[in-house]
């Protein structure tokens, strides 16, 4: 048996200090970490339990935006009345994530930190080669089973897809990750694999997510999260889109547009080219469809995941058009 120490942190500072020690890992809801420990990917020597810490599970929403504590549960955030009304895409992304049981356990901080579902990554006993786990060891996925792998943001070192839903909505609306005092835009928080796929987040040892801040905006208020998958529930996205839109007073000219994609990229994927192409334009189905194709510019497939390149722009277009209908 592997010895493991368990440390119940008494405060955020105590947690940060403990987590800075080699081999230590923060434990929140445990729905990712325990899973990864079981399959041998995570090998924590110390678990620093933060799930019970007071004050980190609050959800505060006002005109300026929302601040969500890192320990707020997915289900609580999803069901929060002000999140639903001011940030529908955030609520919808959470509702469509994982299962009811997982949402009741899992925290917002842990959710951002969830890891790829690449089956080779998750199976060190049988596939030693994985650059994300062992830098320089190679990539077992390339040339293997790739239906769930990324088509955007990939590198020769790694094509693993970022699987989460919430972060897609956060990236769309320029959320900010609070690491205690340090703050970092969520788009910068997630790193591209490049030559260092082992580095996924701009977080240093001893840092901890304390909160997520989402600026309020008209686009966030009129927003939606559309998730496509083979199964109705309890499945990661084949492709998804978080979209928010603000119209000019004429009700059809796009003043502001926020678009991000999930299920297709190595990180939650902001599609600024689509936004730029449509801002100032009238919302016409044809215009929206052709602009949405820009979302997958530069996409590279690995065989079985080719369909994502077809699918993703359609998801983006539908989400935008759906928001237009309610104008």
């Amino acid at each position: 048996m592997r010895d493991l120490s368990y440390f119940r942190a008494s405060s955020v500072d105590a947690a940060r200090q403990a987590a800075a020690l080699p081999g230590a890992m923060l434990l929140a809801g445990g729905t990712t970490l325990i899973d990864l420990a079981k399959c041998g990917v995570a090998e924590p020597e110390t678990l620093v339990d933060i799930a019970h810490l007071k004050g980190l599970d609050s959800i505060e929403v006002d005109e300026r935006g929302a601040t969500i504590g890192a320990l707020a549960r997915m289900s609580h955030v999803a069901d929060h009345a002000d999140i639903k009304s001011r940030f529908p895409a955030v609520s919808e992304a959470l509702w469509q994530a994982a299962s009811a049981q997982i949402r009741n356990m899992a925290t917002i901080g842990g959710n951002l930190m969830q890891r790829t579902r690449c089956p080779y990554f998750r199976d060190p006993a049988n596939f030693p080669a994985c650059n994300k786990r062992e830098p320089g060891s190679g990539c077992s996925a390339i040339g293997g089973v790739t239906r769930g792998h990324a088509v955007l943001g990939t590198s020769e070192a790694c094509i693993a897809m970022y699987p989460g839903d919430l972060a897609v909505a956060l990236v769309a609306f320029d959320a900010i990750v609070h690491l205690g005092e340090r703050q970092i835009p969520v788009d910068d928080f997630f790193l591209l694999p490049g030559t260092t796929p082992d580095r996924e987040h701009a977080i240093e040892p001893g840092e901890m997510i304390t909160a997520i801040e989402i600026p309020g905006s008209a686009a966030a208020r009129r927003s939606t999260y559309l998730k496509i998958r083979d199964r109705q529930s309890y499945e990661f996205a084949a492709a998804s889109a978080a979209v928010g839109i603000e119209f000019e007073p004429d009700g059809r000219t796009i003043r502001d547009l926020c678009v991000a994609l999930g299920g297709v990229a190595t990180k939650p994927w902001r599609a600024r080219t689509v936004e730029d192409a449509l801002k100032g334009k009238a919302l016409e189905p044809e215009t929206v469809r052709s602009a949405s194709l820009l979302a997958v510019e530069g996409a590279v497939d690995h065989g079985a995941n080719h369909y994502k390149i077809e699918l993703a722009p359609r998801v983006v277009a539908r989400a935008i058009l759906k928001l237009g209908e309610t104008a």
Partner: peptide, 17 residues
């Protein structure tokens, strides 16, 4: 090797299906 040898990735219908 089978790459989805777990119930997260080997799918059966859920109630919603």
């Amino acid at each position: 090797r089978i790459q989805n040898a777990n119930l997260a990735e080997y799918h059966v219908p859920v109630n919603a299906d």
